[in-house]
Design a protein around this nucleic acid. Structure first.
Lengths: 234, 234
DNA sequence: AAAGGAAATAATTTCGAGATTTGTTGCGAA
DNA sequence: TTCGCAACAAATCTCGAAATTATTTCCTTT
């Protein structure tokens, strides 16, 4: 008799890590709330030590805050923190795109096109989707794949790793700060602008397009101006 | 009767983490070698779980590589990896310095002067020191404090955190790649050039000085040209 | 002698209980 | 009512052994 529970089948560390990070990126846990090791332990059917390790891995990737003797918390989603992450994303992504444009071959162009195609498809679909929640996970993956592919020919493994961390941190903060899981209809055109600039091998215009992709944040502070149906959470 | 051992007195996680990272930054463990959890566990007198957590923390800060079911290893110190870390350091440090120059007040200038003074003092002393090994830990700290202070007025906590990780990763790789623990006599003038450019509020010249500070790496590939008495490890 | 495989060895990973620390509640005094 | 303090409750942190998985050794087979 199994008195475990009926959750995810395989509950190894990697699976649990991915599951929790997805749930965090989908805004399931309120920003600033405690990640109770004991509750999660029971939910996934593992021991406290295993859960602790997973939480440490999440913490060191920026998904959670850790304080000694005080456990783990979902990082508070402040606009200041958000702007800092955006700043770093723009800096690294522009540099990575610049190098990719300089080094990338036709194979890179093809992969970028493919990644954009998948992303555009889901984004157009989501514009009229009923239940946005169901598409967030796959959209997040395609979004990341596009941004990852953009810098994939930069020649620096390190830059790509750092950018990955920033991407998911950004998403987590965004979901905590706004409604609609951070989805906007405007992203379709913005991603297209980045793609076009990259394929035309224009680093300056590409950097500009990347900048514009994140510029909506500046409008969020003014409550009267709505950004594609968004609202700041209260 | 204590059959523990006679090492560091307080063996909490933070202390062990700092001790191991210092040993790694001093090149005590050969690059590519295994970090045996059991040996370290015995050395510090803690359980395997505690040591495992410390190793995870080290791994997530780039001090160690982790592979599932295969334990922890000292990252292989390759020149490629080194150039990647240098690239990111230049990018982030130039940006951080630029913002600090724009935002920093007189208080920042004073702190930068103080940090440089301490750093210059130890570096001049090390030029003629007998046993370099003894000064590495304190030199590393002052070196970091100077670079940290340089960007401390940039207004981004995130940039500073990322730069800190890069700094120690850089040091670990350097120690693994060259002799003399990565110390060069040329750093004295280079740090002075960075300080002067920052105090004169010249971002472009500051970025140039930062770039020059790391440019010695380009000469390392040519074996005939010696960089201030350095040699590449074989 | 070389290659393959099975047993032996050595490492990592998981577990659950106990020790330690933190947070909370209730009581009494100012 | 407010503050301090002590006892209680709930969480984290550590531990060492057991289970799992990788590595080495050595014997068999080709």
């Amino acid at each position: 008799m199994e008195d475990r529970y009926s959750g995810p089948e395989a509950s190894d560390q990697g699976t649990i890590y991915n599951d929790i990070s997805e749930r965090l990126a989908a805004g399931e846990f309120a920003a600033g709330s405690r990640l109770k090791a004991d509750d999660l332990r029971k939910h996934y059917g593992v021991s406290s030590s295993t859960m602790r390790e997973v939480l440490f891995r999440l913490a060191h990737n920026g998904f959670a805050d850790f304080e000694e003797q005080r456990g783990f918390r979902v990082p508070a989603a402040s606009m200041e923190r958000m702007l800092e992450v955006r700043h770093m994303r723009i800096l690294l992504e522009s540099e990575g795109a610049r190098l990719s444009i300089a080094n990338g071959d036709m194979e890179w162009e093809a992969r970028l096109n493919a990644a954009h195609h998948k992303l555009a498809h889901i984004e157009v679909k989501m514009r009229t989707a009923e239940r946005l929640r169901e598409h967030i996970a796959i959209w997040t993956r395609f979004d990341w794949e596009f941004h990852e592919t953009l810098v994939s020919a930069c020649g620096s493994q390190l830059l790509q790793e750092m950018l990955k961390g920033l991407f998911f941190r950004y998403r987590q903060l965004l979901v905590g700060l706004v409604t609609n899981y951070g989805f906007r209809s405007g992203t379709v055109d913005e991603h297209k602008a980045i793609l076009d600039a990259a394929l035309e091998r224009d680093p300056a215009r590409c950097a500009q397009a990347i900048c514009y992709h994140y510029s909506f944040l500046d409008d969020l502070d003014q409550p009267e101006s709505q950004v594609s149906g968004w609202q700041i959470r209260r």
